[in-house]
C-alpha cells in the first residue's frame, strides 16, 4: 500500500468520525483540527486498527508527527502481516 492508498482509506474513517469535514494531507497534524483531541485520537486508533487489520505497538502512534507519518506507519504494519 502506498501512502496515497492509505490516505484515501483513512479519509473515509475521518469522514465517519469527525463532525466537521477534514481533508487529509500528509502535513496535517492534530493541532490543525480543533475536534482532534485525545478522546478522538483513541477512537481513531481503534477504527484504524480494525479497518486496516493491524495492531500498533505501544507508543508508536503517539510518536508520529503528522498524518503522512501516521499513514506510513499504517503501511509498514500492513506489510508485516
Amino acid at each position: 500500500m502506498t501512502q496515497a492508498d492509505v490516505l484515501a482509506k483513512l479519509q473515509t474513517i475521518f469522514d465517519d468520525l469527525f463532525l466537521e469535514p477534514v481533508t487529509l494531507i500528509p502535513a496535517l497534524t492534530a493541532k490543525d483540527v480543533p475536534e482532534w483531541d485525545s478522546l478522538m485520537h483513541i477512537s481513531l486508533v481503534v477504527a484504524v486498527e480494525k479497518a486496516f487489520n493491524v495492531r500498533f505497538r505501544v507508543g508508536e502512534v503517539e510518536a508520529t508527527r503528522n498524518v503522512g507519518e501516521f499513514a506510513d506507519l499504517i503501511a509498514k504494519r500492513t506489510q508485516e502481516r
Binding site: D16, L17, F18, L19, S43, V46, A47, K50
Partner: peptide, 18 residues
C-alpha cells in the same frame, strides 16, 4: 457491538444535534 461502530454512531448523533 464494536467500540468504533458505537463511536461513529455517537458522532452522527452529535452532528444531528449540531
Amino acid at each position: 457491538r464494536a467500540f468504533d461502530e458505537l463511536f461513529i454512531l455517537s458522532s452522527l448523533r452529535k452532528k444531528a444535534h449540531a
